[in-house]
């Protein structure tokens, strides 16, 4: 079957149709000029030319702060119940799709995280191809190339080639088939990427902690945590408990945490397992380029470039990573 194609002038119609299935969110430029994932207002188009949103779509799956348990004396602890609404995320770049795929591996493993699983089940992902800039490293990493979505849109002249990646995608395609045409032209060799190559995941020796670069990074880093905040695969959270005013109920809350903060490795009694900023930098490095626990050997960095764009100190881990990982990044 020839590839399916939707002409650019039919895009507004496509969005209106999708809206019948679920609430529609995508990259939207606010009045402040910042591009965020937000509801696409009826009659408006998402900003498909923007290369990256300020925050990645992880905010839909892990809220910056959220209640995970409620306690009452009568019922004990109960899992937080949430009305999850169906949501279509439209216009996700391959790096952000890969970010969600990575979070899925952490939060949907053998014992799925209840809140994450509930939200993820109602999320439809519609990806779109893009052209990397100098901050990106997606085109060299394997994960964006292999990222899964329900539908994927690949830009070609005057429109988008549409492919389905799931039964949900098939269903959506079927519902909009009158808007689709057969694409007669050439199909880009890889529908996600205009260039780049994939490499197999592998376990590498421990990074050398004595390299002067760790100190060098540490001496410039301000410890602001912006790089983790905007990273699609930084999912660290802290957990707090708040006692109700009646003192027989309580709420347990988790909130985004940050491995560059000093408190991240502090335990009761005052011992800190990563006192020095250089140690915290190495920690971040390991997670981004090596992966933790069951995902050892699976780098979590998906190459979106956000950390490099937001860093007030202009720090870029790529040159060091290229040396330690033995490949271009």
């Amino acid at each position: 079957m020839a590839p399916q194609y939707i002409a650019n002038h039919n895009l507004p119609l496509l969005l209106e149709r999708l809206r019948r299935y679920a609430e529609l969110h995508g990259p939207v430029r606010g009045e402040d000029g910042v591009v965020r994932f937000a509801a696409i207002a009826p009659g408006t188009l998402p900003d498909l030319s923007a290369l990256r949103t300020l925050l990645p779509p992880k905010k839909y799956l892990l809220h910056p702060q959220e209640t995970i348990l409620n306690y009452t004396a009568a019922a004990g602890y109960q899992l937080q119940a949430e009305d999850v609404r169906s949501l279509i995320l439209f216009g996700l770049h391959p790096c952000d799709l890969a970010g969600i795929n990575y979070l899925d591996r952490v939060f949907l493993g053998d014992a799925p995280d209840p809140l994450y699983a509930a939200r993820r089940a109602t999320l439809t992902l519609i990806g779109i191809s893009c052209t990397p800039d100098e901050f990106c490293s997606c085109h060299i990493l394997p994960s964006p190339l292999n990222a899964l979505s329900d539908l994927f849109l690949c830009s070609v002249d005057e429109g988008l080639i549409v492919t389905s990646g799931s039964p949900r995608g098939d269903e959506l395609l079927d519902g909009v088939k009158d808007l689709l045409e057969e694409w007669e032209g050439a199909v880009p060799e890889d529908s996600r990427r205009f260039f780049g190559h994939a490499e197999a995941e592998q376990v590498r020796p421990e990074p050398d902690a004595t390299l002067p670069e760790w100190q060098e990074f540490a001496s410039h880093c301000l410890g602001c945590g912006a790089c983790s905040l905007c990273c699609p695969t930084c999912y660290c959270f802290d957990v707090l408990e708040f006692c109700g005013l009646d003192s027989c109920s309580a709420e347990r809350v988790r909130q985004w945490d940050n491995c560059l903060f000093k408190s991240h490795a502090e335990v009761a009694g005052g011992t800190n397992f990563r006192k020095e900023r250089a140690e915290r930098f190495l920690y971040r490095y390991r997670h981004k380029y090596r992966g933790f626990g069951p995902l050892q050997g699976v780098p979590s960095c998906v190459g979106c470039g956000r950390c490099r764009v937001v860093c007030p100190a202009g720090l870029d881990l790529r040159p060091l990573a290229e040396r330690l990982e033995g490949r271009p990044l």
Partner: peptide, 19 residues
């Protein structure tokens, strides 16, 4: 280590790349 979840999700307790 500092532990906030016990089940491999909160990202606090890595030793090298092991949790």
């Amino acid at each position: 280590r500092r532990m906030k979840c016990g089940v491999g999700r909160c990202g606090h307790c890595a030793v090298g790349t092991r949790l």
